[in-house]
């Protein structure tokens, strides 16, 4: 049973508002296997490496969520509530919430471990999560 929640923030390729009604591009129709979304794809694969490393290192101890930064209706309140649960004041929680919307951000239980500016390697991400868990709860 997961006791900690890690949010990995990155765009889904081929996702954009209204794309399903009408004008989807991307792999959805098997016509668009080109490199339109190559940049997003690279980011997806990079974050995918972190995802796999965290899953391998912590298993079910971590609840891993990959979310698009445009999914603000879920991302913002979730990070804000988690930040408040950590005891952050409202302004600090709001700052945390805003920082969590970066492509490549890694958020653990309401704390932004990586804000996307310097994307971590899978090893760095695992080490950061392990250190944080050890500090806060004597976890992993």
């Amino acid at each position: 049973m997961a006791t900690h929640h890690v949010i990995l923030v990155r765009e889904w390729d081929a996702q954009h508002t209204g794309s399903g009604c009408c004008g989807r591009v991307g792999g959805g129709v098997e016509l668009c296997d080109g490199d339109e979304f190559a940049r997003s794809r690279t980011e997806m694969e990079r974050v995918g490496g972190i995802y796999q490393a965290l899953h391998a290192a912590f298993g079910d101890q971590l609840d891993l969520t990959v979310v698009d930064p445009r999914n603000t209706m879920w991302l913002l309140p979730t990070v804000y509530r988690a930040a408040r649960r950590r005891g952050l004041r409202r302004t600090a929680a709001l700052r945390t919430m805003a920082r969590s919307t970066a492509n490549g951000a890694v958020v653990l239980d309401g704390k932004v471990l990586f804000d996307g500016k310097l994307p971590p390697s899978p090893v760095e991400a695992v080490a950061a999560v392990r250190a944080e868990l050890t500090t806060t709860a004597g976890g992993a």
């Binding site: 996702q15 508002t17 209204g18 794309s19 399903g20 009604c21 004008g23 445009r70 999914n71």
Partner: peptide
């Protein structure tokens, strides 16, 4: 959230 924002548009 991902699904709904994809299907909602002008049409």
């Amino acid at each position: 959230g991902h699904h709904f924002t994809s299907v909602a548009g002008a049409a």
